[in-house]
Amino acid sequence: MNVASADNYNFAYLDEQTKRMLRRAILKALAVPGYQVPFAPREMPMPYGWGTGGVQVSAACLVPEDRLKVIDQGADDTTNAVSIRKFFQRVAGVATTETTTEATVIQTRHRIPETPLKEDQILVYQVPIPEPLRFLEPRETETRRMHALEEYGLMHVKLYEDIARHGEIATAYAWPVMAEGRYVMTPSPIPKFDNPKLSDCPAIQLFGAGREARIHALPPWTKVVSLDFEDHPFQASKADHACEICGSCESYLDEVITDDQGGRMFVCSDTDFCSTRSNAQQSGAA
């Protein structure tokens, strides 16, 4: 079946000049891991804040032969993931998949798939606030200077104040990381459970923030370290349960409220990982 790119839009929606601008930014982002390259975002037919940065980065990378997977919160069937997948089916005519291992490009919001990525894959993150220092210093002019001078004391002070107050670093997601020993960067708001997967990843990781007009990147095998202190080392954590559907004890879990009596259950956030496991179990049992 040949799915033609619909309407009169250019391949992957964006015009060629826009894609060239994005592609140049992506190359510079790969050359300086963790540094946020400014680009001139376009208004997309979906709202700012709903993945326009990821969509523009994906559009700049997609080839007609790609097989695209889109996840939001780890799931392929959440409404915004469905909407973005349909968009690319329509404007780029690319094949889509929900299976992590079959995908060549994966656009994600807030999760890294549980299934380890491969060399020939590209993971595109939707990023709301690309500046890890933004909530410590709202001014772009200031944070830009801090990155230039490698002045990350403020971040360490914040993390240390957490420890003083709470006994541990009170950050559960968007835990800041150091890319290749030079730039502090945000991994986009993924749960800290996912942080270790950022480092030494065989796939290219691209981060697009549309409204904030920044692209940053991690080439494959980049060393990515979650910020911590010697006496308070970083720990990836998750709910201490097993998935009630597939039984996995290793995957990140969503808590689902099942009734109004306080009943709840835990299931995998990664829907593909979960269904692959439970399908295998069923065929094994049969």
Binding site: P47, Y48, G49, W50, T52, D72, Q73, G74, T78, T79, N80, R109, H110, R111, P128, A172, Y173, A174, P189, I190, P191, R211, A239, Y252, L253, D254, E255, S269
Partner: peptide, 15 residues
């Protein structure tokens, strides 16, 4: 856009 994006699911972060 950014204001209204908080309507999108955030259950991973919330979890």
């Amino acid at each position: 856009g950014f204001l209204e994006h908080i309507k999108l699911p955030h259950y991973v972060d919330f979890q």
